[in-house]
Design a protein around this nucleic acid. Structure first.
Lengths: 218, 218
DNA sequence: CGCGTACCGTACGGTACGGTACGCCATTCG
DNA sequence: CGAATGGCGTACCGTACCGTACGGTACGCG
């Protein structure tokens, strides 16, 4: 018995399959309750049998969807090993803005809701995937910047993981849990930038050595 | 047709009803998946008919359970309007420890999972109840302390809500989302106290005016 | 003693949903 | 042009679970 496409395992989804996964995301965002296989098939204009052939079962479909969404977030590889104070501040600000934009987006909220609901049971750890591509992915990207900042004498900390976690807390605060619990906070870009700026300033106040260069404007 | 007990609405649950709600909590913690009315009836040694008579429907039972758990958390009313640096630090430390103990507890994790899963749909906002008794309740208790600290010249901030949210972020960081997503972090009391202490120090570093009294030991 | 009340245990109906089977059409390839 | 393949639509099955109905029992009260 050859599986026509073992997409459920690891392969990148085909274009048609991506359309299906986008349909799943759409349904998640609209109403996480009626995320049924029939609804997905209807929305994606495909048959349920195809869904099962491609993704195995419902969990496989959800897992593929989470992976698909995760694969979109990755972007912007990093360079610039030499840091001055302004650049460090700028990089941190970028991370904070990006992170806030992600977690306040309806897709992230819906996806995290599904993953958290699933985390109660044991099978198919969506939570692990979301964590790996969210919290941990951003951590692995921020920590080198922090360490570069330390190497440049701009930051002082012993444990980069601990430093990142503080940064994480200063940026996110109570926003994610409030959104997940159903509160409707509306963030425009200006608000996010303001929040991110405050978080970066606070982080630098806690961990900055030279209080960043004095001739820093705006 | 008189309802024998309109408990579903607002009254405090009877002792027998509390036992039922504790059974629900037990099932939530053990395995949020099989939280079925049959399972609750079996666990609580009562009939399903009684469940429906007392709580109306499944959502009513869940809502009553969330309220019941929420009613337990409230404790320790506050006094001490005059603050010195050591007392302020101690109060904040207490709040941080209490909060960390709550959110890392299995009951809180299970309850938040249920509420978040429910927050996707519209009906019966468990999320609102959890927010009101968790995030917002602790906020309303911390803010007066912060304001007293400001009145005593120990803290400097414009918006007590914003100051509290920073405190919240410094204390919780990524802990809650990681737990909700299924990661198994084990915190003992020592770890929690260490974390709380770090958060308080960082908060005071950001918002403290006089760096708290110099002859503060321990 | 007999009756009502409250509750337990359980069986049942209705329904929603995951998963499967099958008929049909379109495209492609020999 | 005929056959095969892939996929859509749909009907169908089994099951899980919500909500209800019903029989049986213990207890209080006239």
């Amino acid at each position: 018995m050859m599986q026509t496409s073992a997409t459920a395992e690891r392969d990148a989804p085909s274009v048609r399959q991506q359309a299906v996964l986008d349909a799943v995301l759409g349904l998640m965002v609209e109403d996480g309750e009626q995320l049924t296989m029939d609804a997905v098939a209807r929305r994606a204009s495909c048959s349920k049998e195809t869904l099962y052939k491609w993704f195995g079962d419902r969990d496989g479909l959800l897992t593929a969807t989470v992976r698909w969404q995760a694969s979109r977030v990755h972007a912007g590889s990093d360079a610039a090993h030499v840091l001055d104070g302004a650049t460090l501040r700028e990089r941190l600000q970028d991370f904070a803005v990006t992170w806030l934009e992600v977690i306040t987006g309806p897709t992230s909220v819906a996806l995290n809701r599904i993953a958290i609901a699933h985390a109660g049971s044991r099978k198919s750890n969506l939570g692990g995937i979301v964590l790996a591509n969210g919290r941990f992915a951003i951590g692995e990207r921020v920590k080198p910047v922090l360490e570069a900042g330390r190497a440049a004498g701009l930051l002082a900390f012993a444990d980069s993981e601990a430093a990142f976690r503080t940064f994480f807390g200063l940026v996110g605060r109570d926003i994610q849990i409030r959104l997940l619990l159903g509160e409707t906070l509306d963030f425009d870009g200006a608000e996010i930038r303001r929040d991110a700026g405050r978080a970066v300033e606070q982080f630098l106040a806690l961990y900055g050595r030279a209080t960043t260069d004095p001739n820093h404007h705006v």
